[in-house]
Amino acid sequence: MKRRKLYLGIIILAILSPLGLLATGSAWGEWTAKQVGKQVGFVPKGMLALESLWYSPLRGYRLPGSGNKLLHVGGYLLSAAIGIGLILIIFKFLAISLPDDQPNEETKNDLKKGAEHK
């Protein structure tokens, strides 16, 4: 089944993902309120209030408290695996409500077309 190749592609990307750590600078406009405060001379009140609204367990794709480089790479890999795994599982659950195998409207038309062609 050729679809296996697609999964393989995703796995390869996940393994290569720590290459993304070569970029040391953060994205423009993705700073903490404090960092913004340093840049503009004051900390916007709303930013400070909302910034820690949500606690993300793997903030920044890092294991909590992982200072050294190797752990950082490990945390990044783990993050890729967890993120991809979660997404695949969620879609698996979403698929429960869908019809099993029978072609839906559009594929049905195509199947008909394919048959006529033959």
């Binding site: 679809r3 997404i87 979403l94 698929a95 019809p99 099993d100």
Partner: peptide, 24 residues
């Protein structure tokens, strides 16, 4: 438009988008 068989494509697409955004 989708059924159980082709839903994994959507999941793969989502996983692709997720992981490609990790390449800073």
């Amino acid at each position: 438009t989708l059924n159980k068989k082709n839903m994994p494509l959507l999941a793969l697409a989502s996983a692709f988008s997720f992981v490609i955004m990790m390449f800073n």
